[in-house]
Design a protein around this nucleic acid. Structure first.
Lengths: 252, 252
DNA sequence: CGACTCATTGAGCGAAGTCAACGTCCGTGG
DNA sequence: CCACGGACGTTGACTTCGCTCAATGAGTCG
């Protein structure tokens, strides 16, 4: 945001949340090139079926990765907020990227896979950090599967809101009591495997319960404990404490 | 299986399906230690909430990774067949393993993370292959999310059967017209976000349509095209053509 | 045989979907 | 300035897919 903080610092911070990197690695990451692009809402950054050729760092806005079903309905498989590097996994599996869309107007930085591969080959710690980042994404994906497969609509929505609250807080984009979520109810439905109509009704219910509120696009969580209980939410899957990482790095 | 083919060869074959490895890497993988264990059906190899300390190579049988909901219902988030290395992702994220259970009687080999980390630090190509394996798992996870989130029960079941058919065929454990699936209808339900009762009914419907059949635990796919159409199945997400991998290795 | 697991089938219910209408906000252009 | 259109949110009436509860078969193992 401020001129003294290059956008790539966002991504470095994200990696440092989970992995240990030395000065050389940090510097190499910060010197990554990449063109900053403004995209409008609803733009397909990577259209369905297309092979990924670059990763996308979210500087501002909300992005969604999604899959499509034959009848045109879609399922969002990941939500990406500022600091997330989208399609990092496709660095090793370019065929399996999935589509990527801006859900709100957004600022992203295109980072070419060639540059990332160079970093990965040069710095084993960066390779490990990228791998860990992908594993963390997969962990979220697992939770989403449990959420959609085995919880009813109220719990689903509560769980998603809790997850986003924690992630926004971690990314220093708000806290778990208030954060700006630039997604329409259609998007929320696509993320939860529900229709927008039902999202609307269910949101009303948990609002009437006094758990949450909304002011334009800002989500207010009035009763964190209640919402977490309703969503059966345990934030462990989002975190990776540094002592574990340290252990992973020093053992062997 | 045969004495001349060490079990670890199964895993090497799996990696070679997607990644390029040299003789040194192959040899290092084959010399991995690990104790072979027989486990009975329904045994929790890694109980819920426990931190992973080793990976598990499936030699024979069927394993499931799953998450639990507060009321005791569960969602299988991955099915692992012979040749799969379970919990490889937790090598970098030990906290995020999820529970692991044998769905049938199974033979597995416990591979300590220390040994795997040593390999990863010594051979960058192995690190990349492991990372790619995790990304491929995540790709399957994405498809499952789409499947559960946006398809009705018939399509869900059809899609899962198609996926398993292709995976068993790839693993040379049968072909896409006939393969042995050691999962009960309860397990299938847990994988699809359905109840066992409904799985039973839906299986009857697609059987009556002439798409599939079953003899004890062997699934027979009578009409591949029909089943793939019903399940909206595109096997691209399971494959990784070698020329792509080669590109990934040579560029940069 | 008895105990157990798994598959099968029926009856009734309820959560979520579908279809449709209407309201609100906001940007845009005459 | 206001009229118009479009995107999004809200609500109601009705339908339906999948769940719950329950009973019964079928196969297997000690």
């Amino acid at each position: 945001m401020s001129p003294s903080r290059p956008p790539m610092q966002l991504f470095v911070d994200r990696l440092l949340d989970r992995s240990m990197l030395g000065a050389a690695e940090t510097e190499a990451l910060l010197s990554l090139g990449g063109r900053e692009v403004q995209v409008r809402a609803q733009l397909d950054i990577v259209p369905p079926g297309e092979e990924a050729t670059s990763a996308w760092l979210v500087v501002d806005g909300l992005l969604g990765r999604f899959g499509q079903v034959i009848d045109g309905r879609r399922q969002i498989t990941a939500l990406h907020i500022a600091g997330d590097m989208c399609n990092l996994h496709a660095l090793v599996t370019p065929r399996m990227s999935g589509a990527l869309q801006a859900l709100s107007a957004a600022t992203v930085i295109r980072v070419d896979y060639r540059d990332l591969r160079h970093l990965v080959r040069t710095f084993p710690l960066i390779a490990e950090a990228f791998w860990r980042d992908c594993a963390a994404q997969a962990s979220i994906l697992s939770q989403w599967l449990v959420n959609i497969g085995r919880r009813d609509a109220q719990s689903r929505l509560a769980h998603l809101l809790c997850e986003l609250a924690v992630r926004f807080e971690q990314a220093r984009l708000g806290n778990r009591r208030a954060f700006r979520l630039d997604a329409s109810q259609v998007h929320i439905g696509d993320a939860l495997g529900l229709t927008a109509v039902h999202v609307n009704r269910v949101f009303r219910v948990i609002r009437d319960k006094g758990l949450v509120g909304a002011e334009s696009r800002t989500i207010l969580i009035h009763d964190w404990a209640g919402l977490a209980a309703l969503g059966d939410f345990d934030e462990a899957y989002l975190h990776m404490k540094s002592h574990i990482v340290a252990d992973a790095l020093t053992s062997a």
